[in-house]
Design a protein around this nucleic acid. Structure first.
Length: 283
DNA sequence: AGCACA
């Protein structure tokens, strides 16, 4: 095996350049955001998983997992040594399927402010903030298993470790007005008032102001677990939107969470959300 | 009250 080191004229003619020049985007201005905000995580995500997701990225510094206390919603923050590194990780990881089992898709944006918690000796490479008030039986401390990750972090998009699908709550669908369409021969027109639609994993969103944009709505909705895609239709009149989720339960959660939510673009009060009449078509 | 895309 003969190694051929090709003659590189630039090495000769540019001898004084810095050996590792940083592109301008990796040099921070004061106040640049180095922290990413991560949503779309399954609610059983572990801090270790977040850490493994980011640890190999250039410039990674530390991360934290946060139980928001809003339902089971979990978000994470990842801090990098520079804005540019944060952006690189953002563009590489945004939108990847985090859990093929549930279809949850990572939504990553720049954080509104930098995380103050840098990695300190003694604090560990990641941190958990728990704002939940009720403890679901087991008070398992996530920080205790900080080094128990035998597997190497995988590239996003590649397959995941197979894990059991314990859908313990898939049966617990206690929806009062939507009895399962059993074969009782009746056309159930239990369409009293507003929510007359049967559950659907696509939501219909109305009462949007004329200036509502898809971007604004997406910013809000895409951080919820199971979010798939959002579409806005203007149809000449007021815009309406369709938001598709992987599971009906996830759509239901979002509907309950965001019903009446006041968008900053709104000139008419909070948004109105119902189940769509039909599931958004796959495309 | 306003529900598209095929």
């Amino acid at each position: 095996m003969a190694y051929h080191q090709p003659y590189d004229p630039y090495q000769v003619y540019l001898p004084h350049s810095h050996p590792h020049p940083l592109p301008p985007q990796f040099i921070d201005e004061p106040g640049a955001i180095n922290t990413l905000f991560v949503s779309g995580l399954p609610n059983d995500v572990k801090a270790r998983e977040i850490h493994n997701l980011f640890r190999r990225r250039h410039g990674f510094e530390s991360c934290q997992l946060k139980y928001t206390g809003r339902g089971d919603q979990v978000v994470a923050f990842a801090t990098f040594t520079s804005h540019g590194f944060a952006m690189a990780a953002l563009s590489e990881l945004n939108g990847v399927k985090f859990d093929p089992q549930t279809g949850s898709t990572l939504h990553i944006e720049l954080a509104r402010s930098n995380s103050r918690r840098k990695e300190r000796p003694g604090s560990g490479p990641y941190v958990v903030i728990d704002n939940r008030n009720k403890k679901p039986s087991k008070s398992q401390d996530d920080q205790s298993d900080e080094d128990s990750d035998p597997y190497e972090a995988q590239e996003p998009g590649s397959s995941d470790s197979p894990k059991e699908n314990d859908n313990s709550k898939s049966e617990a669908d206690s929806d009062q007005d939507s009895k399962a369409p059993s074969a009782n021969g009746h056309l159930e027109k239990a369409c009293e008032g507003s929510s007359c639609a049967r559950p659907c994993s696509t939501l219909f969103i109305a009462n949007l102001g004329p200036n509502c944009t898809e971007e604004e709505l997406k910013q809000l909705i895409s951080r919820y677990p199971g979010f798939n895609i959002l579409k806005i239709r203007a149809r000449g009149g007021m815009p309406v939107a369709f938001a598709d989720f992987e599971e009906i339960e996830q759509a239901t959660d979002v509907m309950n969470e965001l019903q009446g939510y006041l968008l900053s673009s709104s000139d008419r009060g909070g948004m109105h959300i119902e189940y769509a009449r039909s599931k958004m078509r796959k495309q």
